[in-house]
Amino acid sequence: MKLKKLVIAMLVGLAFTSCQKDDPIIPNEEEVITTVIYTLTPEVAAEETVVLKYYSDGTNTNNGTYTQTGIIKKNTTYTGVLKVLNETTDPVDDITLEIKEEALDHQFFFTKPQGVNINYTDKDDNQHPIGLSTKFITDNDFNGGDLTITLRHQPNKSGANVPEGDITNAGGETDVEVVFNLNDEK
């Protein structure tokens, strides 16, 4: 009799727990990114500030418009600042703020042309790079070329060479990737 009551109690308990709804899973939706602006301010005040800008309709493709104001000089050190926007909303959504808030889950990677070195100057709470702030340094070998900027969501920031900016072992998902042809005279 006791065994029968125990089995009934277990079945009732099992039925009760199986009928409970699970907590809903709220996905972290990918941000709509329409604009990437990389501003390069030279350390020498007499030099010209350079602004690289990518703008699209928000489909996160490379079919947007690329512009560069100013000319990147050889043998020059610039302070680089990235700004990421969603201009499909009113007011404009500054995705840069979200990247800062979720710094542990984001990192920019820079695939650069010959004669360019880019160093991270900002870090998340675990002392891993983010890439919103950089030092952009050209040497005598710089003659323009392609600069690819990639924002990864949830990269493995401890992966081999990832803290140094190597995207090879980063994993994660690409939020946006843009390719600027530096000093291209269009």
Rank of each mutant, 00 (worst) to 15 (best):
residue 89 T to C: 04
residue 32 V to R: 06
residue 80 G to K: 03
residue 112 K to L: 12
residue 17 T to V: 12
residue 57 D to Q: 10
residue 45 A to E: 14
residue 35 T to M: 04
residue 127 Q to L: 14
residue 40 L to C: 04
residue 94 D to P: 11
residue 82 L to K: 06
residue 130 I to Q: 00
residue 150 T to K: 08
residue 95 I to Q: 04
residue 31 E to C: 08
residue 63 N to W: 14
residue 56 S to G: 15
residue 146 D to E: 03
residue 51 V to L: 04
residue 109 F to M: 02
residue 90 D to Y: 03
residue 107 Q to H: 12
residue 105 D to Y: 08
residue 33 I to P: 00
residue 57 D to A: 09
residue 37 I to D: 00
residue 108 F to E: 00
residue 103 A to V: 00
residue 34 T to W: 02
residue 142 F to M: 02
residue 32 V to L: 04
residue 78 Y to N: 03
residue 116 V to I: 13
residue 143 N to F: 09
residue 110 F to H: 08
residue 133 S to H: 10
residue 58 G to T: 03
residue 73 K to C: 00
residue 137 I to M: 07
residue 75 N to L: 08
residue 138 T to K: 05
residue 14 L to F: 12
residue 30 E to P: 05
residue 141 D to E: 15
residue 38 Y to N: 04
residue 17 T to S: 11
residue 123 K to D: 04
residue 101 E to W: 01
residue 59 T to H: 14
residue 38 Y to V: 01
residue 85 L to F: 13
residue 36 V to K: 00
residue 14 L to N: 02
residue 126 N to V: 09
residue 124 D to I: 11
residue 72 I to N: 04
residue 124 D to V: 10
residue 43 E to I: 12
residue 123 K to Y: 08
residue 45 A to D: 13
residue 126 N to R: 14
residue 52 L to I: 01
residue 93 D to Q: 05
residue 35 T to C: 04
residue 96 T to G: 13
residue 27 P to E: 15
residue 88 T to L: 12
residue 69 T to D: 10
residue 20 Q to E: 10
residue 45 A to T: 15
residue 53 K to P: 02
residue 98 E to G: 14
residue 15 A to V: 06
residue 67 T to G: 11
residue 82 L to Q: 05
residue 20 Q to I: 14
residue 79 T to F: 02
residue 65 T to A: 14
residue 33 I to V: 13
residue 47 E to I: 05
residue 104 L to Q: 09
residue 40 L to S: 00
residue 115 G to W: 05
residue 144 G to Q: 07
residue 82 L to R: 04
residue 30 E to R: 08
residue 82 L to D: 01
residue 93 D to F: 02
residue 131 G to V: 07
residue 139 D to P: 07
residue 92 V to M: 10
residue 101 E to Q: 03
residue 80 G to L: 01
residue 88 T to F: 05
residue 110 F to N: 04
residue 103 A to S: 15
residue 70 G to V: 04
residue 69 T to P: 02
residue 26 I to F: 10
residue 83 K to R: 11
residue 35 T to F: 03
residue 66 Y to C: 08
residue 59 T to D: 12
residue 97 L to N: 15
residue 107 Q to W: 08
residue 83 K to T: 14
residue 148 T to Y: 05
residue 111 T to Y: 06
residue 151 L to G: 02
residue 152 R to V: 14
residue 150 T to L: 06
residue 108 F to Q: 00
residue 53 K to R: 12
residue 40 L to H: 01
residue 119 N to A: 11
residue 111 T to K: 09
residue 31 E to G: 04
residue 134 T to M: 03
residue 130 I to C: 02
residue 128 H to S: 09
residue 53 K to E: 10
residue 134 T to N: 05
residue 20 Q to S: 13
residue 126 N to W: 11
residue 126 N to Q: 10
residue 23 D to A: 13
residue 144 G to T: 11
residue 90 D to F: 09
residue 31 E to K: 11
residue 26 I to T: 10
residue 50 V to Y: 01
residue 32 V to H: 00
residue 138 T to V: 08
residue 111 T to H: 06
residue 49 T to I: 11
residue 75 N to Q: 07
residue 105 D to N: 12
residue 130 I to H: 02
residue 107 Q to S: 13
residue 85 L to D: 13
residue 96 T to M: 06
residue 127 Q to I: 09
residue 89 T to W: 01
residue 34 T to M: 08
residue 51 V to I: 13
residue 48 E to K: 06
